[in-house]
């Protein structure tokens, strides 16, 4: 039968002794190493494009000047909705004229304040449209700190580079800087699992306040 022929052929080739078995392992290793390198190092570089914020904002400097911490600028409106990134109107109160010597300050006043244009800030924590997230429920309701999700951004003196996912258009901060998804702090990632982890840990009501439906409907209305 052909089985004995196959065995013979195999034996022959091994006996041929020109090291083709070693080559096979070598190629396996080359493939393995190449893909590991491209997967771990090259892929993240290709996946994200780097964008600079229009103005380099100094959070730490502003934190010293305000009384109510983050909420001084990132406030809640009267109806409980969250205002998010401040609008130009808020900045104008102090920045009608150029203050200090920072070139960013000059650009800000020239390009945006005098022209009445809103600054196109890039938002690190912008979630996809299918996610319903209420700041007031977390900050006012559950009494969470901003830093729990956003990290110590209030202490930063300049804005980091915004890494935009070329496929989804969202910031790298949602998946997390660590490409393997491992996190050290609560604010390292903002994926669904991270929301769920905290919700489960704290025994949050597992149904939507608005629709009364459970599971997915808590965040996906």
């Amino acid at each position: 039968m052909s089985t004995s022929d196959d065995l013979k052929t195999k034996k022959d080739s091994v006996e041929a002794g020109d090291g083709s078995g070693g080559f096979i392992i070598l190629f396996f290793i080359i493939g393995l190493v190449a893909s590991l390198i491209s997967g771990w190092l090259l892929f993240p570089k290709l996946l994200y494009s780097e964008k600079k914020q229009p103005i380099d904002f100094n959070h730490a400097l502003h934190m010293e000047l305000v009384d109510e911490g983050c909420e001084s600028c990132h406030f809640f409106r009267e109806d409980g909705t969250y205002a998010g990134v401040p609008k130009l109107a808020q900045c104008i109160d102090c920045h009608e004229e150029v203050q200090g010597e920072s070139p960013d300050e000059a650009t800000f006043v020239e390009e945006y304040v005098t022209k009445g244009r809103e600054v196109p800030w890039l938002i690190y924590s912008q979630q996809p449209d299918c996610v319903f997230f209420s700041h007031v429920a977390h900050v006012k309701g559950a009494g969470m700190d901003c830093a729990t999700c956003h990290g110590p951004i209030g202490e930063s003196t300049s804005l980091k580079v915004y890494e935009e996912n070329r496929i989804t258009g969202y910031s790298r901060d949602i998946w997390g800087k660590n490409i393997s998804g491992i996190k050290k702090h609560t604010w390292d990632r903002m994926k669904m699992d991270d929301c769920a982890e905290c919700h489960v840990k704290n025994g949050v009501n597992q149904s939507s306040v608005q629709t009364g439906k459970g599971a997915c409907f808590v965040c996906h209305k």
Binding site: F27, I30, G31, V33, S35, L36, G39, W40, F43, S180
Partner: peptide, 16 residues
């Protein structure tokens, strides 16, 4: 084939 298999195995070990 060995190279491809190695690549596939390696890729599976990356987050890609």
């Amino acid at each position: 084939l060995s190279f491809v298999i190695g690549g596939a195995a390696g890729t599976a070990l990356t987050p890609l």
